[in-house]
């Protein structure tokens, strides 16, 4: 309870609307994780083995993955024993506390983008259909709102219509898009774009890339080359490499994160499509194993539906209903 109070104070004190957005995005879920936890708590008076087993299943159904779930539940068992918790009242706060703790892994979390004094280059990568281009549009709108000048590079020269899609977003947000024709070398597009960004003195250049499955060696090599070309033009660039990850993805997301990290040194994850019924629990496993933090979440199709990720809010979103009941 105290945890929730602190959490709520912290959140409501800072930014009411963002929290509402989180809640809205997550509450579209009918059979949500939250209500299931509530069911669970209501059904079980005592915290016993059966309770833990059901909890395990809840987490598995949120795509957290076998290993991380086992780890988490073991820690919970220990915690419950230590605190001598006998009944399920108040177990919710222990669960969410633990989830946040696992996510943080003892580190101070930084979801801020690594912004430079002059040009900041952000590279967007990911498999097909996860929402890279849409995320770029939303991110550009966000950065522009913050007063930055933004330029986009249409690096997906492969998929039919991908360049047009980015150009539409460019028009919507009101930022320039550097493009070449379909089928041209993406590395060359990046080279052009960096030149243009330098000469126009923009603050941020966001580079789109074609979606690729992580087991396609040639395509991953191409991505490595794109990364290299950017680094050659500006030392230390790209300053951020964001991996777009679809929240509906299952255990394969872990392999995605690992492979893309090897190729392009991913600095953060954008968890997209979190407004559906999927929970994207795999980010817990990714964080746990690969230490890649989630930086943003996509909560809808509007221009302002990209929000910075905050593990406390994420968990708050999952447990919001329970919290309100407790508060009454």
């Amino acid at each position: 309870m105290t945890f929730f109070k602190k959490l709520k104070e912290k959140i409501t004190g800072t930014n009411e609307t963002v929290t509402e957005k989180f809640k809205d995005g997550l509450s579209k879920t009918r059979n949500s994780f939250t209500s299931k936890v509530n069911d669970l708590v209501a059904r079980f008076r005592e915290v016993d083995e059966e309770f833990f087993e059901e909890l395990e299943e809840l987490l598995l159904q949120a795509d957290v993955g076998v290993e991380t779930v086992m780890e988490l539940v073991d820690q919970l068992r220990w915690e419950v024993q230590r605190k001598n918790i006998k009944n399920t009242e108040g177990i919710q706060s222990v669960i969410s506390e633990k989830l946040v703790e696992i996510y943080k892994a003892g580190e101070e979390l930084d979801t801020e983008l690594n912004m430079q004094d002059d040009l900041t280059v952000i590279l967007m990568v990911g498999v097909n259909g996860v929402g890279k281009t849409t995320t770029i549009g939303k991110l550009a709108a966000r950065l522009k709102e913050e007063g930055k000048t933004v330029m986009l590079a249409a690096g997906d020269t492969f998929r039919a219509g991908a360049i047009d899609q980015l150009v539409v977003w460019g028009d919507r947000v009101g930022v320039e898009v550097i493009r070449q024709s379909e089928g041209s070398d993406p590395a060359a597009v990046m080279y052009d774009a960096i030149r243009a960004a330098k000469s126009r003195k923009v603050d941020v250049l966001i580079c789109d890339t074609a979606g690729r499955l992580q087991n396609k060696v040639n395509l991953m090599n191409e991505l490595e080359k794109v990364h290299r070309v950017i680094g050659k033009e500006i030392e230390g660039a790209p300053h951020e490499v964001l991996l777009a990850l679809d929240a509906t993805t299952g255990q394969n997301a872990l392999i995605q994160a690992q492979t893309f990290k090897e190729a392009t040194n991913v600095t953060g994850i954008v968890l997209t499509k979190l407004d559906g019924t999927a929970k994207g629990g795999i980010v817990l496993a990714i964080r746990n194993k690969l230490k890649i933090p989630v930086k943003f979440v996509g909560l809808g199709e509007g221009m302002d539906d990209l929000q910075p990720f905050d593990p406390e809010k994420y968990v708050y979103g999952l447990f919001a209903e329970g919290l309100e009941k407790e508060a009454e």
Partner: peptide, 12 residues
């Protein structure tokens, strides 16, 4: 349906 879909595939 994306073959990579996780647990949510049933809901969808």
């Amino acid at each position: 349906v994306d073959a990579m879909t996780g647990q949510d595939a049933v809901n969808v």
